[in-house]
């Protein structure tokens, strides 16, 4: 069938496929971003949650691998995080790191270095602040 069409100077199959794929992708882009535009108010603030992933020895100390999860569609830049090791209410060590970006509804990973073994203390990680990109 297609061969007959091609002989008449009609449209080859490849042209149908590539135009079809292109159309689907273009409409998908427009539809998805349009839906985002429709549903977002533009007033959201970043909501960054920190999760401790792993604690491993690193060099002459230890590293705490931290994942920052942004639950809001708003992107946060220069996100400062702080980790504190405490024992009986006494702060033993503090460490800080900065994420350049934690994009909206996305995840970034980083690490905090400590001289002491974080497993031997109470470890608390928290976000300090952010800037709008």
């Amino acid at each position: 069938m297609n061969q007959g069409k091609a002989q008449d100077g009609g449209t080859p199959v490849l042209e149908w496929i590539s135009a079809g794929v292109g159309l689907v992708l273009t409409v998908a882009m427009l539809g998805f971003i349009g839906w985002q535009a429709w549903t977002s108010t533009g007033q959201e603030l970043p909501a960054v949650e920190l999760r401790v992933r792993r604690i491993l020895p690193a060099g002459d100390g230890w590293v705490v691998e931290v994942a920052a999860l942004n639950h809001s569609p708003a992107t946060a830049a220069a996100v400062q995080i702080e980790g504190t090791l405490t024992r009986d209410g006494q702060t033993v060590a503090e460490s800080q790191a900065t994420f350049d970006y934690v994009p909206g509804n996305s995840e970034r990973e980083g690490g905090l270095f400590f001289r002491e073994d974080p497993n031997a203390f109470d470890l608390e990680v928290r976000t300090l602040g952010y800037a709008r990109p």
Partner: peptide, 10 residues
Amino acid sequence: FSYSIAGYGI
């Protein structure tokens, strides 16, 4: 469709 839309798909 065959060039512009297919091209944007690419």
